[in-house]
Amino acid sequence: MSRSMVVRYALIVAIIVVLLFPVYWMALTAVLPTRELLSPSPPLLPDLGSISFDSFQRVFELRPVGRWMANSATVTAGTVVCSVVFATMAGYSLSRLASKVGLIVGYSLFAVRLIPTTLLVIPLFMMFSEVELNNTLRSLVIANTVVIVPFAAWLMKSFFDSIPVELEEAAMVDGCSRLRSFLTIVLPLARPGIGAVAIFSGILAWGDFTFARTLIQGDAGTTVTVGLVSFVGEYTADWGALMAAGLLSIAPMVVLFILLEPLLISGLTSGAVK
């Protein structure tokens, strides 16, 4: 290994240690008795003897973490499907077909990012209560899709931009309709892009906090993020249980991310210009 490689590895490892330290510290807090950490010089490496999983047990005893996860998973899955479908349609339209008007309309989709979410929730709450969608996971799917699609649509647009238009033209010369060539030629080529959009929207939906805490009332529909924050009790600060709950709630998404990350990267970097 060359010297520059060694330096590069050392740098990468150092930066990973710093960047992932918060996750490590959460894990350590979850498995050590809090009292051991309530010290001006907390142990950086755990004494293996004092590791226990009591905090995790406490979390499961105290709150329906399993149901929270199931709710988050439902909302995430619903949002991913809706976002991918809408964003693919809109992205193709913006890339291939849209007039200037369409593009400007598309750009203005970003308006959603301008509204302070604290203010957005009141009208949203009213609208959902009008159509009796309040307190349903569907309302969360809709709200999340609304804020994700503008971004996802532009992601898909630039992905479609990288697929040579000549491919469809050839197909259309052969008698395919625009729609058919979209479905049979462009869509399969766009798979990496669709994967990237799916991961992107999945992460945002799983992490949503603002909507989940306003639009859902009641334990039945609580998602992990809101559930976890309800752990920050008014009456005590049980750091061990809090961190254990935090780890549990990030675990599914982190694992999924680790598995799918190559797909994301190839979706973002490959393009179709080969």
């Binding site: 990468i12 930066i15 990973i16 960047l19 992932l20 918060p22 996750v23 510290w25 959460m26 807090t29 992460i203 799983w206 992490g207 949503d208 906090f209 992990v224 993020t225 976890l228 924050v229 920050v232 750091w239 809090l242 961190m243 935090g246 709630s249 990030i250 998404m253 982190v254 999924l256 991310f257 680790i258 990350e261 990267i265």
Partner: peptide, 21 residues
């Protein structure tokens, strides 16, 4: 690369709790 990107799928509300501690 995956390790470097790990904070991304972690919800902000949970990261916040970790940093407060």
């Amino acid at each position: 690369r995956t390790l470097i990107l790990i904070p991304w799928p972690i919800p902000g509300s949970i990261a916040t709790v970790g940093f407060v501690w």
